[in-house]
Simulated scan of single mutants.
Amino acid sequence: MTAVSVPAPVAPPRRSSPFAGVGHTMTLAWRSLVQIKHNPMELLDLSIQPVMFVLLFTYVFGGAISGSPGDYLMFALPGIVVQNALFATMTTGFGLNHDLTKGVFDRLRALPIARWAPLAGRILADTVKQAWALTLLLGVGMVLGFRLGNGLLGLLGAFALLLTFSLAAAWISVLVGVLVSEPEKVQIFGFTVIFPLTFTSNAFVPTETMPGWLQAWVQVNPVTILADALRGLLVGGPVAGPVFQSLIWAAVLAAVFAPLAVRALRRRV
């Protein structure tokens, strides 16, 4: 008689606990941040490009719009911060699409980690990049003459509001990154949508200097509302209204695009 060995059944993979999922998220976020040293172009987007925008807008348009570069800097820097934050959200979709098309996302999902950790890690890493870009812009602005009008409390409020809005807007980038076939198409979407959105706001010029038909759109443009909120927090002026409206916009963006992005991601992977 010959004994026939029967392989033991393979146990189904256990679900990760929430605490383990947080650890997985932190590890994958660190992976995304460490990649910066191997990608000089991303460092350019995070550091040199924002500084270049501050210098160009301040010294090229400042005298013509506000009479002096210093006065224009006090008006325009919050708007430049908003524009840079919106463009930075595109890196979330770009990196996610790169991971999807190159098979990195599939390899990560095959590991015994929380299913939501790869996406959460990507978003967390990009939030850290947003904080770095905001710190850099404000630092350069202060060197050029920008001064805080509401002290540390206003600065912390501006940080919290901008990161909250950016986190909500990043879901648009996630949805685009999942739907398109190439990472470059995420950038095309950014320039096609974000560029007109920021330039048809009061991020760079006062609303009253625009034609009447355009002012109606500028006043309801979410970029205008967020720029006004940051001006109120950083420089001075109305705060409660613009901040509340910005949070409403952030909630709407997250409520609409987060479920669509998650559903599209599940279908693709």
Score class of each variant (00 low, 15 high):
1 M>Q: 12
5 S>I: 12
10 V>G: 00
12 P>Y: 11
14 R>F: 00
15 R>C: 00
20 A>G: 08
21 G>I: 05
24 H>F: 04
25 T>F: 01
28 L>Q: 00
28 L>C: 06
30 W>Y: 11
31 R>L: 15
32 S>M: 13
40 P>M: 02
45 D>Q: 13
45 D>W: 01
46 L>P: 03
47 S>D: 00
53 F>M: 10
57 F>S: 02
61 F>V: 02
65 I>C: 01
68 S>W: 02
71 D>K: 14
76 A>Q: 03
80 I>V: 05
83 Q>N: 10
84 N>D: 13
90 M>T: 13
96 L>E: 04
102 K>Y: 07
104 V>S: 14
105 F>H: 11
121 G>K: 01
122 R>M: 13
127 T>N: 12
127 T>C: 09
129 K>M: 07
130 Q>K: 08
133 A>E: 01
133 A>P: 03
133 A>Q: 10
145 G>F: 03
150 N>R: 15
152 L>I: 15
157 G>K: 09
158 A>N: 01
159 F>R: 07
159 F>A: 10
159 F>K: 07
159 F>P: 04
162 L>R: 02
163 L>R: 10
174 V>S: 04
176 V>F: 10
180 V>H: 12
181 S>H: 12
184 E>K: 12
189 F>W: 06
190 G>Y: 00
197 L>K: 05
201 S>M: 03
201 S>F: 06
205 V>I: 14
207 T>E: 09
208 E>G: 00
208 E>Y: 08
210 M>Y: 15
213 W>P: 09
215 Q>Y: 06
219 Q>P: 00
221 N>S: 11
221 N>G: 10
227 A>F: 02
228 D>A: 10
230 L>F: 05
231 R>K: 11
232 G>R: 03
235 V>R: 06
235 V>W: 03
239 V>M: 09
243 V>E: 02
244 F>I: 14
246 S>C: 08
251 A>W: 01
255 A>R: 12
256 V>F: 12
258 A>W: 07
260 L>W: 08
267 R>P: 00
